[in-house]
Simulated assay, not measured.
Amino acid sequence: MRILGLDPGLAATGWGVVMADGNRLRHGGHGTVKTPAAAPLAERLAALYDGLMGVMAEQALDEAAVEEVFVNANPQSTLKLGQARGVVLLAAGKGGLMVHEYATRAVKKALTGTGAAEKPQVQAMVERLLGGVKVSGADAADALAVAIAHAHLRTSIR
């Protein structure tokens, strides 16, 4: 099972691929799709879509797991994050993937045992679970964490 984990963001959307064979996990790749900050919103969303479709074209994927949006204090930031998340869901859907969504606390709990884990703790656990792979960037680490959480939780979903 090849799982694409996605951590939505307008400036940077993290992606990570995990191959799950029973309880065994292997790293399949990771990265970040970035959008130009000075570009109009529509262009940024289009760039995000194109970037994700490129990632999916390079990978033979079975399912996708997406981190749910949290509400910011700034309503404009929350709205833009929601729009980026919509593009992430659209791209995964257009890529023919079954999409599963997870709350941030559920992902942290699945990896570390506590929903209140800090980002460095989550990244360290991702690297440990994937055989010492060095993950570049917090967005990619979060995306891999979502994929790993889905790998662990997918049997209970069915």
Rank of each mutant, 00 (worst) to 15 (best):
M1E: 12
L4T: 02
L6P: 11
L10R: 11
A11G: 09
T13G: 14
W15K: 13
V17D: 08
M19P: 00
A20R: 13
D21V: 12
G22L: 08
N23S: 14
N23P: 08
R24M: 14
R26H: 09
R26S: 15
H27I: 01
G28R: 05
G28V: 01
V33C: 06
A39T: 11
E43V: 10
R44C: 04
R44N: 07
L45N: 09
A47V: 09
A47D: 13
L48V: 02
L48W: 02
D50W: 03
L61M: 09
D62M: 06
A64R: 03
A64K: 01
A65N: 01
V69T: 08
F70H: 01
A73G: 14
P75F: 10
P75M: 05
K80T: 07
Q83D: 04
R85F: 09
R85D: 11
R85G: 14
V87A: 02
L89Y: 04
L90I: 15
A91L: 10
G93P: 06
K94N: 11
K94F: 09
G95Q: 00
G95A: 12
M98C: 10
M98H: 11
M98V: 12
H100K: 04
H100I: 01
R105S: 13
A106M: 01
K109W: 03
A110W: 06
A110V: 02
T112A: 05
T114W: 01
A116G: 10
A116K: 11
P120R: 10
A124E: 12
M125D: 10
L130I: 02
G131D: 12
G132M: 13
V133W: 08
V133P: 00
K134C: 00
K134M: 11
S136L: 08
A138K: 07
D139V: 09
D142M: 09
A143S: 05
A145R: 08
A145H: 00
I148N: 00
I148Y: 01
H150K: 02
H152S: 00
H152N: 05
R154Y: 05
R154W: 04
S156E: 13
I157V: 05
R158P: 03
